[in-house]
Design a protein around this nucleic acid. Structure first.
Lengths: 123, 123
DNA sequence: ACATGTATGTTACATGTGTAACATGAGTCA
DNA sequence: TGACTCATGTTACACATGTAACATACATGT
């Protein structure tokens, strides 16, 4: 699975805090911040479904979107890629250094740390 | 100045270790690793000059390329962007955590740390 | 003077991403 | 039932990036 772009990451963040959400609901969350029209949000959502970053379902007659991978898994991929290509750190990463990011709970940091430094089966 | 792409970063890395270099010399350094034809390397170099990531001069009759910004400055920008958007860490970053990357010397880490955590005049 | 190599300039085309409008169909209210 | 709204499907266009070929000009050996 390819890494999410910056915009895609913004949408994923919205969905990690609450999912599934409809396109309209996602727009309410990220539209103002990204200064996107509803069309733009919808296009991006479609592409994310194509790339299997999101899963599409129907609830109460509307299409709703759910992230396919957990926050920890996604971020571990993004971080691994970053440290590999930018800093050429191939080995274990010092995840403790990031703990004061409020992106993840303690639980999620543990998961991320595991993904990043122990297991190696990508998908 | 916009952030370098992954490919552009590979070229910058080659030039940080030795500059200026001609297109041919750069190709010898990065071509095999990236599996690029000479044409591809040259196109990327041109675009980097357009974006003012590289400066173009003529030495002994050949065109040679030099990075416009220092390794520390470039990497501080890339890192700042990453931590902002991915981990939403806006404040000072724990650069010490990266010291065992061999990308930078102790000197350069100091410069990077300064750029990242003290000064704030971007260009 | 000609052929050949090397450097440089120019152009091309596919895919990804940002950014959006247009069209259509179904539900709702007057 | 006609007008409107909302959700969804489809299409568009520009710019960035990956990836490269074609064309031309200069130097150099024969």
């Amino acid at each position: 699975m390819s890494q999410p772009s910056k915009s895609e990451l913004a949408i994923l963040k919205a969905l990690w805090s609450e999912a599934p959400l409809s396109a309209r609901e996602i727009q309410e969350k990220v539209g103002p911040q990204l200064e996107w029209s509803f069309s733009t949000t919808r296009t991006t959502l479609s592409r994310m479904v194509e790339k299997t970053l999101l899963q599409l379902d129907t609830k109460h007659g509307v299409r709703v979107y759910t992230p396919v991978q957990s926050k920890a898994r996604t971020l571990s991929g993004v971080m691994r890629e970053f440290f590999d290509t930018v800093l050429e750190m191939k080995g274990p990463l010092p995840t403790a250094a990031f703990h004061d990011s409020e992106m993840l709970s303690e639980e999620e940091w543990l998961e991320l740390d595991h993904l990043l430094n122990e297991s190696h089966d990508d998908d």
